[in-house]
Amino acid sequence: MKNKPDIADLLDRYWEGETTLEEERRLKEFFATEPVPEQFQQEALLFRALRAQQSVQMPAGREMIVSPRSTFRLAWAAAASVALLLCAGIWWWTTRPDSTVKAVAQATPEHKPAQEIIIQAPDKPLASVEIVPVTTPKVAPKKNTRPRKVHHQPEALPPDTYEDPEKALEEIKAVLALVSTKINKSKQEIDKGLHEVEAVDILFKKKKETNG
């Protein structure tokens, strides 16, 4: 709390433009909270009016011209695109007529006629995809997954590309592992962006509540 001489001195310096910002804040605080002596009525009016003007805000509803929605939509669009590409890729891989998988089947007559390929439905993480020949006893399907089976007729298969079926399988696994890595990386980026957007959204809601 300031006494009268202090306030008088500060005011003199204020009118001369010699006060610091801190001193000017103290004056505003004093006139806002203390009983004002008779001789400072005009000054009180000024400082309270200045303080009042500091609280003027832009009317609600006209505050935002850019919205995080555009970023949000972009993130969702990217996620949807990745998912679509993934589905299209899997569909193409399993249905194309000259697939390496079919060639593998053809190259292993001992597997005829029961050769089939099982593509595991995506388990978490999202892009973890595995191909397992049923006839290979070492690799079993995971629990709680719904295998999707694609049957191929050996007599309709085109000529070989791989002599060794194990090698062909390894090649397929390698390709799909690469795709899986890329998709997981993209997903992480999208999740990170969405997390930031959600944080911003929370801040906006708090601001709205405060203003409201």
Binding site: Q41, A44, L45
Partner: peptide, 8 residues
């Protein structure tokens, strides 16, 4: 002219 005392 200040019409009234100006205290909080």
């Amino acid at each position: 002219e200040i019409t009234a005392p100006f205290n909080p």
